[in-house]
């Protein structure tokens, strides 16, 4: 099961430039089928840009992004449209269609298939609402009358409505209370088990990273500075990683993992 065929997303020699500013320099990444990959990095490190490039919303200056083995830049347009039904995206602010009710928002991708009958769509929408823990009484409400946490969960229900194989999450737990973030993580882990979902997630939340990610990719210095399990990445002596994982909050989150912590008095080697 190893090798190039196992990559559900393959990024090769990717460069992104905005004017003179280089965001990604010769970046390579492979996301394996069935894993949860967390993308972390400081603000402005190009995490969101990379996510948008994986979705084909932006194109890299140079290099190639392949999803399901299809190049997002040169792929056949019909083929590209088909893969858009195989992935789902949860935007940071939910990006619900404000002119449509909660029910219509989740039903929209199913309706667009044009083959399912209204009753089946109705039952599927209700099932998705149950899955993300939204009471059905909210189905007729408009997005503007919902709280931020609810918008996010409905956004997830919409992202899941086409039963995707690949799920992108942009800051899924930001703005959720701890209890909700916990149940969000449980939900993602459950879906991954049940549907064999592959998840790519941009997040700052250490608890989320520790609890559900199989691998962590650290974006720093315009490339993937470290890639591996949480324990492996946390041990890399890169200044950003040291700050991120070895701070007070990081230590608390990592406690559950029981990984070899560097001795507090050991001098940390700078990577550069």
């Amino acid at each position: 099961m190893t090798g190039a065929t196992d990559c559900i997303i393959e990024i090769r020699n990717l460069w992104t430039q905005f004017g003179l500013q280089v965001v990604h320099r010769d970046l390579n990444l492979c996301v394996h089928r069935g894993e949860v990959l967390s993308l972390v990095g400081g603000s402005g490190s190009g995490k969101s840009t990379l996510l948008r490039e994986m979705l084909g919303l932006e194109h890299p200056t140079q290099g190639e992004v392949k999803v399901f083995g299809i190049s997002l830049r040169d792929g056949d347009p019909a083929e590209l449209n088909r893969i858009r039904n195989r992935w789902g995206m949860l935007f940071q602010e939910g990006a619900l269609f404000s002119a449509l009710s909660v029910y219509e928002n989740i039903a929209l991708p199913l309706r667009e298939l044009k083959t399912l009958d209204d009753e089946l769509i109705h039952d599927l929408v209700m099932l998705k609402l149950d899955m993300v823990g939204i009471e059905r009484g909210h189905a007729a409400k408009m997005p503007s009358s919902l709280s931020g946490g609810m918008v996010k969960r409905i956004g997830l229900a919409r992202a899941l409505s086409l039963e995707p194989e690949l799920l992108f999450l942009d800051e899924p737990t930001a703005g959720l209370d701890p209890d909700r973030s916990e149940s969000f993580c449980t939900l993602i882990a459950h879906l991954k088990r049940e549907l064999g979902l592959t998840v790519v997630m941009v997040t700052h939340d250490l608890d989320t990273i520790v609890s559900i990610s199989d691998r962590v990719a650290v974006l720093a210095d315009q490339k993937i500075a470290a890639l591996g399990t949480v324990a492996e990445v946390a041990a890399v002596p890169h200044p950003f990683i040291v700050n991120f994982f070895q701070g007070e909050r990081g230590k608390r989150a990592l406690e559950g993992l029981k990984l070899p912590q560097p001795a507090p008095d050991a001098p940390l080697r700078q990577a550069h």
Partner: peptide, 14 residues
């Protein structure tokens, strides 16, 4: 999952 959920009927959005 389906069995555990509340009955799916008569919850149609009016």
């Amino acid at each position: 999952h389906l069995e555990a959920g509340p009955a799916l009927a008569d919850l149609r959005v009016k």
